[in-house]
Simulated assay, not measured.
Amino acid sequence: MRKRLLTWISIIAILSVLTSCSYGGKQISVGGKNFTEQYLLSEMTAFLLKEEGFKVKQMNNHGSTVVRKALENNQVDMMWEYTGTALITYMGGRTHF
């Protein structure tokens, strides 16, 4: 329950920051991985951004490393990532800070 609440608070905070930015009609690309939960996250994000007047380009159906590289190369403006995937795949599996 607490994790879901924190997830929704994070989603609202991210979208609030994005909608407060002045993009002037700039297109935002939302990346997504190739499984159901990611499709849903991408669709919900795109829907909310479109409601706020953004032009949204969705780039779904990619693997984790492909979407991450696209984000690093500025081909994707935003994506949803899981802390476990980020920890193991991109941060070398460190379990303590």
Rank of each mutant, 00 (worst) to 15 (best):
V56N: 01
L87W: 03
M79V: 13
M78W: 04
M78S: 03
A46T: 09
F97Q: 13
A70Q: 15
S16V: 08
E81I: 11
K57V: 01
N60S: 05
I12K: 12
T89F: 06
G92E: 08
M44Y: 02
H62R: 13
A86E: 13
G24L: 06
S29D: 01
T7C: 14
G53M: 02
G92F: 00
V76Y: 06
L6S: 13
H62P: 04
Q38M: 02
T45F: 00
N34Q: 10
Q27K: 11
I28R: 06
L87R: 14
V17S: 06
W8Q: 12
K57Y: 05
W8E: 14
L40E: 14
S10D: 10
T65R: 08
G25T: 03
G24A: 08
S20W: 02
N61H: 05
T95I: 13
L40C: 07
V76W: 08
E43T: 13
S20I: 10
I11S: 04
T36N: 06
F35C: 12
H62C: 03
E51V: 11
R94T: 12
T45V: 14
V66L: 05
K33R: 12
M79H: 02
N60V: 09
T7V: 08
N34A: 09
V56E: 07
Q58A: 07
C21K: 11
G31P: 09
G24S: 07
D77A: 03
M59P: 04
M79W: 06
E81T: 15
